[in-house]
Computed example of a mutant assay.
Amino acid sequence: MSALTQRPDVATGERYVIPNLRNACRILKLLGRHPEGLKVADLARMLKVPVTTTLRITTTLHLEGFVRKQDGRFKPGPMLIQLGSAALAATEVRVLALPLLQKLTAITDETSHLAVPCDERSLIVAVQDSAHPLRAASRPGFLAELHCSSTGKVFLAFLHQRDIPGILTREPPTRHTSNTMVDLREIQREADLTRERGFSLDNEEFNAGVRCLAAPVFSADGSVVAALGITASTLRFSLDRIPEISTKVRAVATELSQLIGYNGSA
């Protein structure tokens, strides 16, 4: 889209963009998706930015505490934890969800969690552990892939249903277990099923022996702003419990939706 055809607000905003500041933001986003860390050459190649420019940016971020360097690779730094914690604490939906996560854990006896959409991923923002904690349960700050997580499937189904091919092209789905769906048509069918029944299921698709179920949280305008769900061992969360668990998760997700202004008619 040319500057002549852009919306006025977009064109005006782009006029004030600082290219290397934008590149610094893109570097931080990439590091968030690669917890193993990335070398300067990797970052330059992925962003299509000169290595010398990338080195200057990462050096500055390192000095300011936004990244750390380990074994020649850059990783997210301690300053991001501080900023992330402050952002999470100020998130209204998270604050309202905390007592409801406690309720969901109490009525299911399983670990519950809340996620929000973030750059074509699912960001876990709150977790309420059960008496049966799982090492595989994601912690706050974890960015889950959309195709293989229950909260991610909610966002695929309700936010990205028209752009699933594009998302999978930009980031090809990774197969984590023998159950992981990586075929476009299969993922699209799963998104259709999620919208139809009102909840999503991660059936041992990210971790073997772990089953997750999530439901959408709607805002006042009817858009999906979060997903609420549970994580459990398949030994406790058997397939025949899906009707029971889905009813409980959807009921609590509806409570949260109502708290943020959704009346079911948007």
Rank of each mutant, 00 (worst) to 15 (best):
D202K: 02
P19K: 09
I260M: 04
L235C: 04
P216T: 07
T254Y: 03
R135T: 04
S223L: 07
E64F: 14
E145A: 11
I167F: 01
R197L: 02
G152T: 01
P99T: 09
Q128R: 14
L239R: 07
P133S: 15
L80W: 02
E36P: 02
E205T: 06
L30R: 13
D240W: 11
V40G: 11
E204G: 02
S2K: 10
R26M: 10
E190R: 10
S238I: 15
D129V: 15
P35W: 00
L184F: 03
V127P: 01
L146C: 04
E36M: 07
E145L: 08
L80Q: 10
S246H: 06
A90W: 02
V49I: 13
L184I: 11
V127H: 00
H147D: 12
L47T: 05
A97Q: 04
R121E: 11
F142E: 12
S130T: 15
R94L: 14
A86M: 12
G84K: 08
R33S: 12
T231W: 00
D221W: 01
R211K: 13
D202C: 15
R250G: 07
I57P: 04
G65P: 05
T58D: 07
L213P: 07
I245T: 08
C212S: 10
V252R: 01
Y16T: 10
R185A: 09
L31C: 04
R236I: 15
K75S: 01
F158C: 05
N179Y: 05
L156K: 03
S265Q: 09
F199L: 09
T194D: 11
E171N: 11
N20D: 14
L38P: 08
S150R: 00
V49W: 06
T194M: 08
S223W: 03
M181L: 14
L259N: 04
A226F: 00
M1S: 08
P19N: 11
L100M: 07
C118S: 07
R7N: 11
P117M: 01
H34G: 13
V252I: 14
A87R: 14
L4V: 12
E14W: 07
M46A: 12
H34Y: 13
E186V: 06
R175H: 03
P19W: 06
D9A: 14
I27L: 10
F155H: 06
L47E: 08
D202A: 08
H160S: 11
K39H: 13
L168P: 02
C25Y: 05
P243L: 05
V116I: 14
G77W: 01
F158K: 04
K153E: 06
G32R: 05
R211Q: 10
T58I: 11
N23G: 06
A44L: 13
E14I: 14
R241W: 01
L114Y: 13
A214Y: 05
I164T: 04
R195N: 01
V210T: 04
